[in-house]
Design a protein around this nucleic acid. Sequence first.
DNA 1: AAGACGGGGGC
DNA 2: GCCCCAGTCTT
Length: 348
Amino acid sequence: MNFTKLLINWYLKNKRNLPWRETREPYPIWLSEIMLQQTRVEQGVPYYYRFIEAFPTVFHLAEASQQEVLKLWQGLGYYSRARNLHETARYVAGELDGNFPEDYKGLIKLKGIGDYTASAIASICYNEPVAVVDGNVYRVLARYFVIDTPINTPAGVKEFKALASELLDIKNPSVFNQAMMEFGALQCRPKNPLCESCPLNDGCLALKQKKISELPIKLKKGKIKKRYFNYLVFQTKENATLLNQRTGKGIWNGLYEFPLIETERQLTAEEFLSREEVGAAVGEVKHVQLYNEKPVVHKLSHQHIYARFWLVESKKLPPKAISMDEVEDYPVPVLIQNFLNEYEPTDY
DNA sequence: AAGACGGGGGC
DNA sequence: GCCCCAGTCTT
């Protein structure tokens, strides 16, 4: 048997039961594919259930506010996905009568849908013969054929897409694509792949050449930055506080957080409190207290954030102040949510 | 072509 | 501590 035959046989016997595998409707498939971008299936599943329940159709999602969508997305990361999801839902509902484009060419024009997602939706929902190339596919192909072209270069992207397209079972692109990904996730895993029990081990060149652990090749990205965040947790005797929405291009765009003062290094309490910008920010206060002497280290893929929270007992807050109890309605970064989970407002 | 963009989990 | 995950968008 050839590669494709063996792969599909393996898939039909070993595939997981995943909620979005029970349908070929574009809305749930699209939703699941956006959620699974750079995200493990196990991490995405609970979010998928929550979204489908809150927004059963693309119209429900379109009618929601951005805050509702971001709140439901909270913790899943890469929040531009949620903003694009929402924008595309509004476009499909408003301009396309709720009908998604029915081919790769139309799908890839939508916000948040790139080559992978357009191929996935087109093949799964409409049986269009377009090959998906995700992290799993890179790994399976790089190993089976011993391809050492770095996968995160334009040349690599092109080469692997071409190879996947050649192998694609054009009679059954939906099953083939999902089989490639499932095989990469469960059998041809990044670490400790199950080569002994692998149905493709006969033809696997990397196994033959003992190069499994070296493939695929991926060029390293730049180093991580360190950042120092100081959050001002205002508190009045009426239990009001202040929250700001992040804007611009940086991390957590659209999410809310306490008023933030970022410094270029870790300051002592005296240094921090003597800064002009801090004085201007806290205004007329009774008391400022450092909540955590040891900064919380919040590690992201590309930066480490050292966060300290300053409790600011304030007499008066601007009109936009909200009740501490309302904070949970706002989408916040995990760093803030962790703080909220353990913080108990204290009496002075 | 290179960075930015989250958070969780494996080893 | 490093790598990876059903990638996309911006510069």
